[in-house]
Structures are given as structure tokens and as C-alpha cells.
Nucleic acid binder design. Structure first.
Lengths: 127, 127
DNA sequence: CCCACCTCTGACGTCAGCGTCAAGGCTCAG
DNA sequence: CTGAGCCTTGACGCTGACGTCAGAGGTGGG
């Protein structure tokens, strides 16, 4: 697959794929003219990269941990890194959940307040 | 409270508080010499700002929505904004949860692989 | 009154993950 | 063979949330 195909399939820009290669996250085979060609699983790999970025990992962390995500083989250090990130993500989920719930409370309070004001207006208009 | 106190209590830098003020997220009263003084609830407000940043809101969005978080009063537009962000956060939580679970699967697979290799080594040594 | 410590404004630095532009080369359907 | 549309490298730009530094002034315990 050429770079545009992979980019379209993964929903990112060609620029991103070149950036990933620069960072050591993604490899390609070059044709004689220098054009990049990717294996089929590159698309899935890119999706992993995006997911890990979205989870707050740095490109450095992704570069270190992505190999064992694909190969299933991990050194002790890699396993430790994976677990650390997993824990971080878990904490993040809890924080977000807390924020969401507090936001729900705010929304509910604002709705209540709106209804109160509507009731006030209704009462004053009927008075 | 002076800026350093608030910063320490909220776990951020004074620089951040000045930045928040610049962005319209936080207000202070100035002494005659120009030094900032904050009300007690500034600390909680800063914690809200941090939580909303962590949830991926821009400072612009925070500036728009933070007032009704504190006052409980919201216009229709603000309510819509709050709900939109709430939905975004919810989606983000689901994505993170999915990533975490997939990461768990990877970790489990890597552990299995480690055990297999250990078993292989054990078998070859007994052969 | 002094001195250590806090605070002020203004301005430039940083870092990541790309966007974007320039100037050129490759590909392939017609 | 030609032109539309892909691709290449290199390099600068951008955005947000601050960090950091300089040079100056406020503050309060002893």
C-alpha cells in the first residue's frame, strides 16, 4: 500500500505517517524510486498509535511499547512500562469519570435553577 | 490569599494563576501596590480549571462554561456547551476504557508468552 | 531599618504533533 | 507521451499551557 492509501484507511494524514516513521513508530519499504510501501497491518498499527496518543502516551513511550503490542513478546522493562501506562490510563479514566459526574451535577443544578426562574416568572405574571 | 498561597493550595504554579487571569478564567483584587489577592474559593475554582483542562477543554471553553459551574446560572447556550462537553468526555472515557482493555489483553498475552518460553527452556533442559 | 522572600510586568523559550509550502520526481490511464 | 495526481525531502509555522529570566518593587519578622 502507498502512503495515501494507508493514511485514508487509518483516517490520518500522510504527514502523520512520515512523522511516525521519523519517530520510529512505523516502518516502510522503499521502492526503487524512493516511495514508501506499507504492509497491510500498518493500518492497524497506526490505529494503535492513535489510541495510545489519545491515552496520553508520548511518542517516545509509544516507540518503546508498540513492538511488544504487535509481537506479543516483551522484556521485563517493557512489561513494566505497559503496566505503568495501564495504571495511568486507569487513573485518568477515574478522574474523567469524576469530572463528568460533577459536570452532570452542575447541569442538573442549572436546569433546576432555570425551572425555578420560570416558576417565579409564572407566579409573578399570575399575581 | 496571595498568589503563592493559592498556587500551593491548588498544586499549581503562580505563573499558571497569572495565565488563568490573562485568559479570563480567574479574577483577583489588587492591593494598592498591585499585588493580587484571592478569595478562598479561588482554590476550588483552580481545581475546576485543572479538571476541565485534563478533560480536554480549551481555555476558551473553560472561560465560557466556568461561570455557570460556580454560579449555577446558565444560559441556553451555556447549557448546550456543558452538555456537549459532557458528551465528549463520555466518549473519551469509553475510548480510554477500550484502550485500557486492549492493553490488558496485550499484557496478558505477553505474560503467557513469557511462561511458554520458560516452559520451553525447562523442557529442553530436561531433555 | 534590614534583609530574605514574595510579587510584579514583559517578553522570549519550550515541546509535541502535526500543517503547510516549495520545488521537484514518479505513475499510469488515455 | 502527456497530464493529473500521486509521492519525495526539507524546512518553517502553529497552538496551548505554561517555564524561565530580568529588573524592579512590595512585605514582614527580628
Amino acid at each position: 500500500m502507498r502512503i495515501g492509501e494507508v493514511a485514508a484507511a487509518a483516517g490520518v494524514s500522510p504527514r502523520s505517517l512520515r512523522y511516525y516513521e521519523e519517530r520510529g513508530l512505523l516502518t516502510s519499504v522503499r521502492s526503487s524510486s524512493g516511495q514508501r510501501h506499507y504492509a497491510q497491518d500498518a493500518v492497524e498499527r497506526v490505529r494503535w498509535i492513535q489510541a495510545l496518543y489519545a491515552a496520553g502516551l508520548s511518542s517516545r513511550a509509544v516507540a518503546e511499547l508498540l513492538p511488544c503490542v504487535h509481537t506479543g513478546v516483551a522484556t521485563d522493562a517493557m512489561l513494566a512500562g505497559l503496566s505503568a501506562e495501564r495504571t495511568r490510563i486507569d487513573t485518568q479514566i477515574r478522574d474523567l469519570t469524576s469530572t463528568r459526574d460533577r459536570l452532570d451535577a452542575v447541569i442538573a443544578a442549572a436546569n433546576d435553577h432555570s425551572r425555578e426562574c420560570a416558576a417565579d416568572r409564572s407566579a409573578s405574571s399570575t399575581a
